[in-house]
Each structure stands twice: as structure tokens, then as C-alpha cells.
Write a protein that binds this DNA or RNA. Structure first.
Length: 213
DNA sequence: TGCCAGGCCCTCTTTAGGGCCTT
């Protein structure tokens, strides 16, 4: 296991940007997490990271090996999902959460934590939903395409949990900056970002005008 | 045997269908 960090108590304004690599698309169909990566942001600054491979208890498909670069050999000696997710549950306590297409990561987070009878107390926001509203001119809202669109610095690694969490965190900060620069909303709150993600695309401009300070 | 994710969003919609996005 290569868990980088398990941090202390987080301030209330701390956000954890996370990404799962998994054996497939649906925990309801028996899929499990095989890697979790996360970046902890405090006032827009990375203050901590978490990364861990985890053994799902069965062999992953060749598609997943090729897609993620995570091989069955790499997972043989990894800690179990229960151990890694227990430490990750400690890592996210007191934090709000962000992911790209959060409904996917939330399903796996909820599923894995339920198996070890753990929970979390933050809300979950989605950088994909925010992107569809703030960057409507973008032809694609895939994470890799948005990294290119916004010219976000990256190391050319995709479909690994920590690398994807890092660029998602950068995307999140780009979106916060865009609200300040383009819409005059100073220091946008996490709650506002969640509301933007739920606002109908056609009315998001009027919604933002109401929040100009 | 046949099926096989699920939420969001758009449109030729709402008693539906299909594309996008995540692995």
C-alpha cells in the first residue's frame, strides 16, 4: 500500500478533491475500487494528499489493466479495500468533497464505506456539472479535454487516481477563478458551487448575477 | 435466455429516447 497521508482535523473550509479507479462502472454489479487518490485544498492551496492502491479480492479485467495501467500484479500485494478505505474515511472527515462526474465517485465511496460501516459528513460537488454551466462553449467536458481546454498544467498521466485528482483540483480552482474574473463573485463558496451545478443551464447567467458582490 | 450503471441533460419531450461522462 502506498498511502501518502492521513491528516489531522480539517478546517471547515477544507475541500477534498478525489478520484477512484475501479474494476468497472457499477458497485451494484459487484465492481470495487482499486485505487483512491485525493488532494486536500485549504483556501485554494494543496495542504495534503492521499493515494492508495487496494486489492478488490478478485482479478481485474484486461480492459481495466490497459485503461488504468494498474495490473493484477500491482494489486496482489496491495492492502484490502477495507484497510485503505478506513484510512481514507479518516482523511475526509470534516471536509466537503469534489469529483469530476461526482455521481460515479459518490456511488463507489458510499458503497465502499458502507461495507466497513463508515460514513462522511461533507457534501459532494461535481466539477463536470459546474463545467457544463460555466464553460458551455467547450465541445467536450471530459476531464482530459478540459485540462487541454484550460491549459491546466499536468504530467501527462491520466486514469490514475492521484493524477486525476490533481488535475480535477486544478480545474476546480480554475472554475473558482472564473467566477471571480468573469462574474464578479468574490471568494465563491462551496455551497454556491453546488448550487451552480444544480441550476438549469439556461438560467445560470441570471443565477450568477444575483450573487455578484 | 437475455439482460447487464446511473445521473444529467437535450429534444423531434414529459405516457421517451439517446448522448455524455465516469471505470
Amino acid at each position: 500500500m502506498s498511502v501518502i497521508s492521513v491528516n489531522k482535523t480539517a478546517p471547515a473550509n477544507t475541500v477534498v478533491v478525489l478520484d477512484f479507479e475501479t474494476t468497472g462502472l457499477s458497485p451494484n454489479q459487484g465492481d470495487r475500487a482499486i485505487e483512491i487518490g485525493a488532494v486536500k485544498l485549504e483556501n485554494g492551496v494543496v495542504v495534503d494528499r492521499f493515494q492508495g492502491l487496494m486489492n478488490p479480492g478478485f482479478r481485474v479485467s484486461s480492459f481495466i489493466e490497459n485503461y488504468t495501467g494498474i495490473s493484477n500484479r500491482m494489486l496482489v500485494d496491495a492492502a484490502s479495500c477495507n484497510v485503505v478505505m478506513g484510512e481514507f474515511a479518516d482523511f475526509i472527515q470534516g471536509c466537503n468533497l469534489v469529483a469530476h462526474n461526482a455521481s460515479f465517485d459518490k456511488r463507489f465511496l458510499d458503497g465502499e464505506l458502507e461495507l466497513i460501516q463508515r460514513s462522511y459528513d461533507g457534501d459532494f460537488a461535481c466539477s463536470l456539472l459546474v463545467s457544463r454551466r460555466l464553460t458551455q462553449e467547450a465541445s467536450s467536458h471530459k476531464l482530459g479535454d478540459l485540462v487541454a481546454y484550460h491549459q491546466i498544467e499536468n504530467e501527462g498521466i491520466f486514469h490514475r487516481a492521484l493524477a486525476d485528482a490533481e488535475v480535477t483540483a486544478s480545474l476546480w480552482l480554475v472554475q473558482l477563478e472564473a467566477l471571480e474574473r468573469d462574474h464578479g463573485i468574490i471568494n465563491p463558496s462551496f455551497d454556491l458551487m453546488m448550487k451552480i451545478g444544480k441550476t438549469p443551464k439556461g438560467s445560470v447567467v441570471n443565477f450568477l448575477k444575483k450573487h455578484v458582490q
